[in-house]
Every structure is written in structure tokens, then in C-alpha cells.
Design a protein around this nucleic acid. Sequence first.
DNA 1: CCATTGATGTCCGAAAACGGCGAGTCAGGC
DNA 2: GCCTGACTCGCCGTTTTCGGACATCAATGG
Lengths: 170, 170
Amino acid sequence: MTNGPDTIYYDEIDSPVGTLRLVADGRGLREIWFERERHPKQAYPGWVRAAALLKFARAQLEEYFAGERQHFELPLHPIGTPFQLEVWHELGRIPYGVTISYGELARRIDKPLAVRAVGAANGRNPLPIVLPCHRVIGANGSLTGFGGGLPTKRYLLDLEDRIARGDLFG
Amino acid sequence: MTNGPDTIYYDEIDSPVGTLRLVADGRGLREIWFERERHPKQAYPGWVRAAALLKFARAQLEEYFAGERQHFELPLHPIGTPFQLEVWHELGRIPYGVTISYGELARRIDKPLAVRAVGAANGRNPLPIVLPCHRVIGANGSLTGFGGGLPTKRYLLDLEDRIARGDLFG
DNA sequence: CCATTGATGTCCGAAAACGGCGAGTCAGGC
DNA sequence: GCCTGACTCGCCGTTTTCGGACATCAATGG
């Protein structure tokens, strides 16, 4: 069940990790897809191309990829279950350039045993990059998975690590 | 899953069979509830009270209850599965004051065996009175069921029978 | 005359399967 | 001894699947 009677807007943006499709409604940014992963919900009838909010999103993402932005300032409106929203909200608190484990994330939302559930919720994060699910990795340091593909996850972590360490040459 | 990005309007109307709640979107009348049956979807946040269409609906319903209207002229936009839409559409062709059986209705949509399914679809008619599901009764003449309660069903059939026969005194 | 049965689409509840995990165990290799 | 990797098992929210129940009715068999 979708939520509101709002009009839905979308836009696309080229990035170092491929084309991104942005989706928003009147309340905020709602989804970001990697072009390659065929998202089941793609192409609703009645979507309207572009809106003011998406211009900000696009600009901030470009800054992020240029290494000039470490956190986003956008109204967000992801759709999900209460548990998922809790997980995604917690994602927003992981600092730039830092990684934590799925177990640690589970502990932070006070459900230390809901580890696999956290993994699943993470895998369904509708706002990758903006909500940095890529900063969550296995307890043993393995990357374990990413909607946009593991290479993309590695790219994002490399980028952040490089910038955070002030290493301008990579 | 709701359908459109349309704003949703509602209004209420008193009738001989209790308070009716009318719901519409930009495309047409969408639902009519009997006040007493606690409808699960009641009271969405963000609904807007009243709209032009609902004034027409209200007026035509009042005329209907006064015995001065035998069919409705309103844009309709009920939400349902293809099968349900087919059933509901067929409801609209049953003349005022006439009753048919569930089996007959099944035959009319070319699915003579989908009798119980027709019953179920009938029970989920979102636009009672306007789409006259009350004109469908058991093959043996029993009323068998009605969302607004069997007394209401009987009332509607009595009303139509009286008017159709020209019996102004009941 | 009554009870039984089969056909149909949808909803609802229960139950099972399934993950972007992780701690523990155990066998091998060095 | 110490590390590694393969394996097992428990954990938990979500999704999928499945089995009934329905605003029925005609046919059948006792």
C-alpha cells in the first residue's frame, strides 16, 4: 500500500557508479535506484518528471561523488515498516568514512538479536548513498552485500576513506 | 495499494437507512459507506471535506430516497480487481425495481460457474445503492446478505418495488 | 427432502521459508 | 599453539505460500 495522495516526481543522474534514478513525492525524497538493478516498481504511470526537490538531491549527490559533501540535507520520505524505518533512521547516524557491523547496528536500535532482520532491512534501503547502508559490513570485515553491487559498495567506501583521511591523491 | 496521486474528498449525508459517507477523488465517486459498518479504511489523514462532485452525489441520493430518481448520473471510480470491476459494471445494468440471482449475474459476465466469486465481489461493492448490489438475491428468493444490513436491503427493494409499481401509498 | 459436492475469485490467518548475520565448533595446515 | 575456513545453529522481521471461508447454486444420491 502506498501512502499518500501526493504526486510522484522522478529524475535521473549520471554518477561514477552508473545512472541513478531519483524518486520523490511532496514530502521528500523517496527512492534512489541503481539503473542496472531492475527495480520492480519502476515506471509507474502518472509520474511527473523533475521537481525542485530533485534538483537539490542531484546537486548534493554530485557534490558527494566529488568528495565535497559528507552528509546530506534533504527532506526524506522513505516508505517501509516501522522496523525498517528504525533501521534506516539509525543508518543516518553513522558518520562519513566509518563502518560498523550489522550486529552493532542491531545493538544500537536495542534489538541485539535482530541481526539478520537488520541485514534484510538494510538490503531494502530505498535511499542508498543518502542513507549510507554501504557503511554496514560483516563483523569479520567482509562486505557481504549491496543492492547496487559489491563493486559499488567498495567504491563508495574507498571514496569516503580517501576523503576522510584527507588523502587527495587516492 | 491505492491508485492515484489524486486528492481524496469526502462528505456525509443523512438517509432513511442511516448516515452515508461518500468518498471521491478527481476522477469520480469512489466509495459509499454505511455509517454503522466500521469500515477499515475510514478516516485517512489528509482527506479534504467536500467537493463539487459530492454535491451532485448527495442530491441524487436524496432524490433516490424520495422516489424521484431511478438511476444515477455520476462519474464513478471504484477501486478493485478486474473481476470485481466486471461484476460491479454489470450491476449497473440491472433495471430499477428488478432483482436477479447471483447465478444469473455470473452468467451475464460469461462466467456461469463463478457464482460464489460473484457473491464475494458483490459483498465488496464500494458503491452500494448507486451500483445496486441490493438487486441481487438468492436463487430461491432469499436476501442472503448486504453490507449495510439485511433490513436496509429489504428497505431499498421495498422502496423500488413500490415506486416501480406506481403505488404511491406503499 | 436433506446432505454432499464441485466450480470461482478474493481475502485472511497461520505457517513456513528466507535473508546483505554472527558466535561457536572443529578439522587442517603451518 | 595459532590462524583459517567450512560448517551448524539460533536469532528475527518480512515475504511467500497455503488452506479455508465467503452475500451461490445445480446436480446427485441417500
